[in-house]
């Protein structure tokens, strides 16, 4: 499929070259801002949560006050093992992962697939956001196999083995050179797997010395649905054949939130091509 859609993209660009695209004025229906939650619980890492607000599509951007998009003033609690962990409302920034958060705690996320984590947020206006998740076991990558063609170009195939007794969802990304350069990003539902062995491959695009960061995320169904519908919403805006839809959140509540509260189980490996 990629080549096919690349051709469509090529035709779209060709049309753009014919000046067949223009800016127009439209009036969209009114929209009420919603709170947006992003919280990934990674075992061994401190609790972090990003609470922002959505905006009307044409709302102006205040570049001088990027914090205007943050939703502060809420009381955020995560309950695990019968203990409530209160997250402080302050800005956290990790220069390695480039991750922002406006709520966090120095408490460390415990391991264990049997633990249930419950999110409870009370906004300053009394409205509630809640969610519940577990941290799935990591599905490790079995091997990264490098193959080279006659032109001395290499591809990498990622092999993994999955538990066929359960319904699993995966996300596989390949970053080229550094984490902020995403080369491939696939979401997979294992419902079509006939064999326990799975594989993802790249094209013959790489040369000796290239650095590739491979990540395999083991997701639960709510997180898979959230990410899948979010990516499809982005795609539908740009694709004349696409069908828009509503983002399926993993959180709910009287605040009518959008967002994700999930465990993050991932295996990551960096490979420098020989």
């Amino acid at each position: 499929m990629p080549t096919f859609w690349k051709t469509i993209l090529f035709l779209t660009i060709l049309l753009s070259a014919c000046n067949l695209e223009k800016e127009i004025d439209i009036d969209l229906p009114g929209y009420t801002s919603q709170p947006v939650v992003e919280c990934y619980l990674e075992p061994g890492k401190p609790y972090r949560l990003l609470l922002t607000r959505s905006a009307a599509y044409f709302a102006t951007f205040d570049l001088d006050d990027p914090a205007a998009a943050l939703w502060n003033g809420a009381t955020v609690t995560i309950r695990v093992d019968g203990q409530d962990i209160l997250l402080d409302n302050q800005v956290y920034f990790d220069p390695v992962t480039l991750q922002f958060s406006n709520y966090g705690s120095n408490e460390i996320v415990p391991e264990g697939p049997d633990r249930t984590f419950q999110l409870y947020i009370e906004l300053e206006n009394g409205l509630i956001i809640s969610g519940e998740t577990r941290i799935l076991p990591v599905v490790p990558m079995d091997s990264l196999v490098v193959e080279t063609n006659a032109q001395n170009k290499a591809r990498v195939i990622t092999y993994f083995t999955e538990d066929q007794s359960t319904h699993n969802y995966y996300r596989r990304t390949v970053n080229f050179g550094s984490r902020d350069s995403v080369l491939q990003d696939f979401l997979v539902d294992d419902g079509f797997f006939d064999t326990p062995k799975g594989a993802f491959g790249t094209g013959f695009s790489f040369e000796p010395g290239d650095t590739l960061i491979h990540t395999l995320v083991h997701m639960d169904e709510p997180y898979f649905n959230y990410l899948n519908t979010l990516l499809q919403s982005i795609s539908a805006n740009l694709n004349p054949f696409g069908q828009p839809g509503l983002i399926i959140s993993t959180v709910s509540g009287t605040a009518n939130p959008i967002g994700v509260f999930t465990g993050l189980s991932m295996d990551r490996d960096t490979l420098i091509l020989p």
């Binding site: 439209i26 969209l28 229906p29 009114g30 929209y31 801002s33 919603q34 947006v36 992003e38 990934y40 990003l50 922002t52 959505s54 905006a55 009307a56 599509y57 709302a59 998009a69 990790d94 992962t97 480039l98 991750q99 922002f100 990304t173 970053n175 984490r179 902020d180 995403v182 990003d185 960061i213 990540t215 995320v217 979010l230 919403s233 982005i234 805006n237 828009p244 959008i258 993050l264 991932m266 990551r268």
Partner: peptide, 19 residues
């Protein structure tokens, strides 16, 4: 046309694709 009425920022996991 079915056009979006709102927008939200998405940070994604480390190494993901922020939108």
């Amino acid at each position: 046309s079915w056009l979006p009425v709102g927008r939200l920022p998405f940070q994604d996991i480390p190494g993901g694709q922020p939108q």
